[in-house]
């Protein structure tokens, strides 16, 4: 894989380490970290901060029979879960868990302009979808109400800010209006999460939006 240029923000890494991000964001973060050793190391730091915060705050008194109850749980629990083997294919393991397979298992739905999407099941609060953008095609010009994370899995796209290739993640907020265009050559496949609906700037896409639920 080529070198990753666009990484997760500290706020996202801290939120993932703390366990406070919505599930849809967690999926993008876990998928990026599966591809990026830098962010994996940064995550370990933020987890170490969490460990220190937990260990230095005051302690709560345990129930009287707590240790015995725990030993009973251990005696009755199934043995340790096996480490999942790394899956092969385009999608890193956490994404394959949500798709129930690799690229060929995705159930695409056309959303206009040649672009297809597949919304993945997560809890409320944010949504996450796979996007398939044919080479050379633009995703309609849009802004954001909340935060949008876009992780490139295959191909590359270019917008007003920069070029994003496989492994890169773009973190967009309210300030950014952009028109991502897939580069010529290879179709672009992205994993995108939002915690609020996108705002399309043209009339037509807004009507489309109502039907496809972006």
């Amino acid at each position: 894989m080529t070198e990753i240029k666009h990484h997760l923000t500290d706020a996202l890494l801290m939120g993932y380490a703390a366990g406070t991000l919505p599930e849809a964001f967690n999926l993008v973060v876990a998928t990026h970290i599966s591809m990026c050793d830098d962010c994996r190391a940064a995550l370990a730091e933020f987890e170490a901060v969490g460990g220190e915060v937990m260990m230095t705050s005051e302690s709560a008194e345990m129930a009287e029979d707590s240790l015995t109850a725990t030993l009973d749980k251990i005696a009755n629990a199934p043995s340790a879960p096996k480490v999942r083997p790394r899956t092969s294919g385009l999608f890193p393991t956490p994404l394959q868990d949500y798709v129930n397979g690799d690229l060929d298992a995705v159930k695409w739905r056309k959303i206009g302009g040649g672009v297809s999407q597949a919304v993945l099941p997560t809890s409320k609060g944010a949504t996450v979808r796979l996007l398939h953008i044919p080479a050379g095609t633009a995703v309609p010009d849009h802004g954001h109400r909340g935060t949008e994370l876009t992780l490139v899995l295959q191909g590359a796209f270019v917008d007003e800010t920069d070029r994003f290739a496989a492994g890169d993640v773009e973190v967009a907020n309210e300030d950014l209006n952009h028109t991502p265009v897939a580069e010529a050559g290879m179709d672009c496949i992205c994993l995108a999460a939002t915690d609020a609906p996108l705002k399309f700037n043209g009339l037509m896409p807004r009507i489309v939006q109502r039907f496809v639920g972006i």
């Binding site: 599930e23 994996r40 999942r84 809890s123």
Partner: peptide
Amino acid sequence: ARNRRIDILRKERRPEPEEL
């Protein structure tokens, strides 16, 4: 503990990065 909290309080799956 964090993962258990997500399990119990939020009743959500927690996607984890793949193992090295």
